[in-house]
Amino acid sequence: MIAVDDLNVTFHNGGRSIHAVQGISFNVAAGETFGIVGESGSGKSTVLKAIAGLVPSTSSVLEVDGRPAARRRSRAERRLLQLVFQDPYASLHPRQTVDGILREPLVIHGVADIDDKVMAAIADVGLLPMHRFRYPHQLSGGQRQRVAIARALILRPPVLLLDEPTSALDVSIQAEILNLLANLRQSYSLTCILVSHDLAVVAHLCNRIAIMQLGKLVEIISAADLRSGTVTADYTRELIAASRGFTRAPSQNQVVLS
């Protein structure tokens, strides 16, 4: 569904240039959920933005659904994928109601039966009809992220790109959003790329996981490998150890609670 070969992204800032993504290649099959993990500055979000066409990139292959994903895209190509961003407090228009936010993509793409579609989208993400005319500031963080997901899915895209969708939320709310994503993935038969710094979240939702460090791909492993610790790169091992909690001595490999 998504093919990426030798993806490079360079940002120019004054006289300096930053090679944020360096020769990344991977494929995501239809219906698969692919995870990308890494620390801040590893370029994981930039990969997503490059696929979405939000940053200029060069590559030998960058395809979504068999079509080249260029910087300039036709309306039909833009319907293929949607993004959900990290911070639901920043990514929703503060002066628009939920109805306005959900309606906009439908109007842009000239879709019929807008009212019904908005109501259906609200129900699909577990919100109530009474939320339809609320403003984002009248909703909780979890509810806002539900609105962002509803907006992303309202055009029924085959591909959903998720950039840290739960890292601004409490554990209990994160559980609700992750369950929602798992259910929607099934009912909408979505192909997803999930970017996160949280290994447990990625292992929970994804089939295969790419580990990135400083713009480079370290390795691609399966979720089962991640759980069992059968990895080849030292960096991945270090990342897994660090996510399992605090250890008194750096080398000591004590058993800690999950």
């Binding site: 554990v171 209990s172 994160q174 559980a175 609700e176 992750l178 369950n179 798992a182 949280d198 290994l199 447990a200 979240v201 292992a203 929970h204 991640l226 759980r227 897994i240 996510s243 399992r244 609670l257 999950s258």
Partner: peptide
């Protein structure tokens, strides 16, 4: 002993967190 906490809220919080060790099909909500 956090994993064996008694209060329903603590237990719910522990169950809601995705874990690297246990594969859960659905996460418990609070």
């Amino acid at each position: 002993d956090l994993q064996n906490a008694r209060h329903p809220y603590t237990r719910a919080l522990v169950a809601a967190a995705p874990s690297l060790d246990i594969q859960r099909t659905e996460l418990a909500t609070v």
